[in-house]
């Protein structure tokens, strides 16, 4: 029977130049429930679909506020995300303590990128099994960064990761032009719609399974959960028919 000899550790390349352990870690991200992030000129928004393992259990946390100016959304192993977010919290506090400066988003993303990379290059370690979206506002404005288990990080205008996130990304690509000029409210609505796209047929976005994080220029990162979301969910999906109609039209134009 075929057995892959190159996937026992993350320090051995396959003859094709692949590192299987890293690729497997990336699969773990795809198992996580979907999260999306969008930036405008003034705001950065995260939206996440929370999952509960069973009816009786609570929902898994998907958005973690790190510092007053940013937070992260995770897809994949939540425990790995906690390790990373603890590190980010420490680094953020250290930056404020030693320089009286909120850490830059590019900087903090780079630091977790470096950490993740070192896990892929030493024997006996395993890559992080989690993808992150880092969103917030720093001295240079609103930003959204994507982090992958391989250590790859990149700045995004809009992004979705996790299970069935391709649908969300398709929505984001279609509406990309609108994001930059969007208001705070519109940006949240876009994020929720993108999230909705990734849901399977029988599922709905509810106050229980949705998380939204918003930060803006001179506006701190705030996590919205539960009843705080009622307004947005109603406003976004009330005009459901309208949007699907619009969507339908543009689909026709496209084809």
């Amino acid at each position: 029977m075929f057995r892959n000899n190159y996937d026992n550790d993350s320090v051995t390349f396959s003859p094709q130049g692949r590192i299987f352990q890293v690729e497997y870690a990336q699969e773990a991200v795809k198992q996580g429930s979907v999260v999306v992030g969008i930036v405008s000129k003034t705001h950065a928004v995260l939206a996440a679909l929370k999952r509960n393992a069973e009816e009786l259990s609570s929902y898994q946390k998907k958005i973690i506020p790190i510092d007053t100016h940013y937070g992260v959304a995770l897809a994949g192993l939540a425990s790995d995300a906690r390790v990373l977010s603890n590190f980010m919290k420490q680094q953020s506090l250290a930056s404020r303590l030693t320089y009286d400066r909120p850490i830059g988003l590019a900087e903090i993303t780079n630091r977790i990128g470096d950490r993740a990379q070192s896990n892929t290059q030493s024997y006996g370690k395993r890559p992080y099994g989690v993808g992150l979206l880092i969103a917030g506002v720093d001295a240079t404005g609103p930003h959204l960064f994507e982090f992958q288990p391989s250590g790859v990080t990149q700045e995004m205008l809009a992004c979705g990761i996790g299970a069935r996130s391709q649908m969300a990304r398709t929505y984001l690509e279609r509406n990309l032009d609108e994001f930059a000029g969007s208001s705070r409210e519109d940006l949240v609505k876009h994020a929720l719609r993108a999230l909705k796209e990734s849901l399977s047929q029988d599922k709905e976005l509810t106050v229980d399974n949705t998380s939204v994080g918003v930060s803006g220029v001179s506006e701190e990162f705030v996590l919205y959960e539960g009843h705080e979301l009622t307004g947005w969910l109603d406003a976004t999906f009330e005009n459901k028919e309208e949007t699907t109609a619009e969507g339908g039209e543009s689909m026709e134009v496209d084809s």
Binding site: T98, Y99, D100, A106, N110
Partner: peptide
């Protein structure tokens, strides 16, 4: 060298020196 495009201004510098 770090890719932060926010240069240390006087307040940052003072905090650092005080530490």
């Amino acid at each position: 060298y770090s890719n932060s495009d926010q240069p240390l201004h006087a307040r940052n510098l003072h905090t650092y020196l005080s530490k």
